[in-house]
């Protein structure tokens, strides 16, 4: 187990290291001088040079890469070119919107997907199965930003239940925040729920064929009891993998949704930062997102190894 863990950890660090190099190079080739962007129209070259020196832009690429990495290791992500505050502060501030939104969307999608998947699987071939999976097919095909536009049209414009845009801020309290995140969360959750319910359905179907379910049935449990007591836990394994991946996808995938609803989240921040050539922000956020993905993959791998000893042994070989 220890050597499996070490092997996984090593590959995690290696992935992160290579990822930072790729991100750095990609950022290096971006046209446009950040100092010139910050100075605006003024053509004072001395001031621009001083600013470049202050930002460390006059150093060699190698030194800049090294400074960036060593800074990040101690939590110093640098100063945003446009906001003039530390990137870490900026990111933390935006996470107070993006993280709740992501969790909200994940909860919604799980609440919808798991019952749908279980019902579909246990009534395989019935009308409700066909209907639910047909709906899921349509759900997968709907681009979330279009769904968001439709939600705004229906709930904000026509019914006026929700304000169309903006974020009330945490000072307003929990429920106003929840309300302002509801439409964005639904638009993010629906396509994810559609995918998840399909995974859940096939996972339950798979599990129901297993020997231990047959044993449970032979022992006298009904199909439903066998499923609830023994099946669901096992059926959840692939679903958890997908959930893990969806978490990191949603954290960054809210870019367009956050723009539609004018939410001051991470996605919108990075999108604006790309447009404004605030490269240090882009660099840091992409790195953090890669870190999130890699960490989640690592944790899922660990969970698998914990559940399934065969994998553990293979890792040790």
């Amino acid at each position: 187990m220890i050597s499996f863990l070490l092997k996984r950890l090593f590959s995690l660090i290696l992935t992160l290291f290579v990822a930072t190099i790729i991100i750095f190079i990609l950022i290096e080739v971006v046209p446009g001088d950040p100092a010139a962007f910050m100075m605006g129209l003024s053509t004072n070259t001395d001031a621009a040079d001083a600013l470049r020196a202050e930002l460390g832009l006059n150093l060699s690429a190698w030194d800049r890469y090294f400074n960036w990495i060593s800074g990040m290791l101690v939590g110093d992500f640098g100063i945003s070119y446009t906001y003039r505050i530390p990137v870490s502060e900026l990111v933390l501030d935006r996470l107070t919107v993006s993280l709740p939104l992501t969790i909200y969307a994940l909860i919604l999608s799980t609440i919808i997907a798991i019952p749908v998947g279980v019902i579909s699987a246990s009534k395989r071939g019935s009308f409700s199965d066909t209907f639910l999976m047909g709906t899921a097919q349509i759900g997968v095909a709907i681009p979330n930003f279009w769904f968001a536009i439709l939600l705004v049209l229906l709930f904000s414009t026509t019914l006026q239940w929700f304000s169309a845009v903006g974020f009330v801020g945490w000072e307003a309290g929990f429920f106003p925040v929840l309300k302002s995140l509801t439409l964005p969360a639904i638009s993010l959750a629906l396509p994810q729920a559609a995918i998840l319910s399909r995974v859940m359905r096939s996972s339950v179907l798979e599990v129901m064929d297993e020997d231990y379910i047959r044993t449970a049935r032979a022992k006298g449990l009904t199909k439903r009891q066998a499923l609830i007591r023994h099946g669901l836990r096992n059926a959840m394994i692939p679903v958890l993998t997908i959930l893990g991946l969806q978490f990191s996808f949603l954290l960054a995938g809210g870019i367009i949704i956050e723009s539609i609803f004018s939410l001051p989240g991470l996605g919108r921040l990075v999108f604006q930062a790309i447009a404004q050539r605030d490269l240090i922000v882009v660099k840091s956020i992409v790195t953090l997102l890669v870190l999130a993905v890699v960490m989640i993959t690592f944790l899922v791998d660990l969970a698998y190894a914990w559940v399934d000893p065969r994998l553990r042994e293979r890792g040790e070989r």
């Binding site: 990822a19 990191s248 996808f249 870019i255 990075v270 997102l289 890669v290």
Partner: peptide
């Protein structure tokens, strides 16, 4: 590694 990058972003 490629999978680790957020694709839309």
């Amino acid at each position: 590694l490629v999978f680790a990058f957020p694709s839309l972003l």
